[in-house]
């Protein structure tokens, strides 16, 4: 019964990855069909000797950290605020969560407009809002100037906006899954509210936090649409490997594109494979 699935995924996931990997070892630097010769890992060597690729990797690293930290913080705060049940909870929950339903392209179109770098009199977007509210110190050039951190944090901002609600939902489910007896017992022992969270509730949530980390991490590593929509495809400051691969395709350099894609896959695999192994092993124990 599983055979069709195994065959399909065998080809379309593993077979095609092997195909990409194979291409990445050749000198197929053109769209022309025909034989290509193997050059070993030369394409990878070139990539890692290239400023542009290293820049895209660094951008990716910073983006991932900014995105994960931002999303976890907002998600956790919202979950904490809602966890004990407040009137109107379902309204808050729904509104916090709804950006999740929107495509990255749509949100990129909107945020690209909000993150306009003009300031002062000419300010547009969020800067204009800060101008109106007299919060001049908040105005900034977003992704167009400044350090790698401010640049990639600006790109992470819309992603945080989209996914914090999701993380909130995860944590909320986690809180609600904790048996009420645990809280009661802690209270009876005279634990303070802070200690209750610190020593009783948070440890219960750590598996969820781990899942959230993996989910967010692999989403961030694959991020493409949002950057494409906000900054356009060829912008050095915000280029990540997924975007660089699209740029490389412009010159029909199949081998280099494949090599970039395989590096990206390797980065994701480093994150995900231990996690899958851990998951499967845990299940076996149960």
């Amino acid at each position: 019964m599983l055979l069709p699935t195994v065959l399909l995924l065998g080809y379309f996931v593993y077979g095609l990855i092997a195909w990409s990997f194979n291409t990445s070892l050749t000198d197929r630097h053109t769209a022309r069909k025909g034989p290509a010769s193997y050059v070993g890992f030369a394409n990878y060597g070139h990539l890692f000797g290239e400023d542009r690729f290293l820049n895209s990797l660094k951008n990716l690293g910073v983006l991932t950290v900014a995105f994960i930290v931002g999303t976890l913080i907002f998600g956790l705060i919202w979950a904490l605020l809602l966890e004990k049940g407040v009137p109107g909870e379902s309204i808050f929950r729904s509104i916090y969560l709804f950006p999740m339903a929107i495509s990255m392209i749509a949100s990129g179109v909107v945020w690209g407009w909000l993150l306009n770098p003009s300031q002062g009199e000419d300010a547009r977007g969020l800067n204009r809002l800060f101008e109106i509210l007299h919060l001049h110190f908040l105005e900034n050039p977003w992704w167009t100037a400044g350090s790698r951190w401010t640049t990639m944090a600006s790109i992470a901002l819309p992603a945080v906006w989209q996914l914090s609600g999701y993380i909130m939902a995860l944590f909320l489910a986690g809180f609600r899954g904790i048996p009420p007896e645990l809280r009661e017992a802690a209270r009876v022992d005279g634990a303070s509210e802070f200690k209750l969270y610190r020593h009783v509730l948070f440890p219960q949530l750590s598996p969820i936090a781990l899942s959230a980390l993996i989910i967010l991490g692999h989403m961030s590593l694959k991020l493409f649409d949002l950057i494409y929509a906000i900054t356009g495809p060829n912008q050095f400051r915000t280029e990540v490997p997924a975007v660089y691969m699209w740029n490389t395709l412009l010159r029909s350099d199949m081998a280099k594109s494949a090599a970039i894609a395989i590096v990206l896959l390797a980065v994701v695999a480093v994150l995900v494979i231990p996690y899958i192994a851990y998951t499967v092993r845990q299940e076996n124990e149960e």
């Binding site: 542009r52 167009t144 100037a145 400044g146 640049t151 060829n234 912008q235 050095f236 400051r237 280029e239 740029n247 412009l250 010159r251 350099d253």
Partner: peptide
Amino acid sequence: GQNNDILSAMSQFSG
């Protein structure tokens, strides 16, 4: 391809 590389360098220079 040359153009793509140059454009990338231009956007880097702008920042």
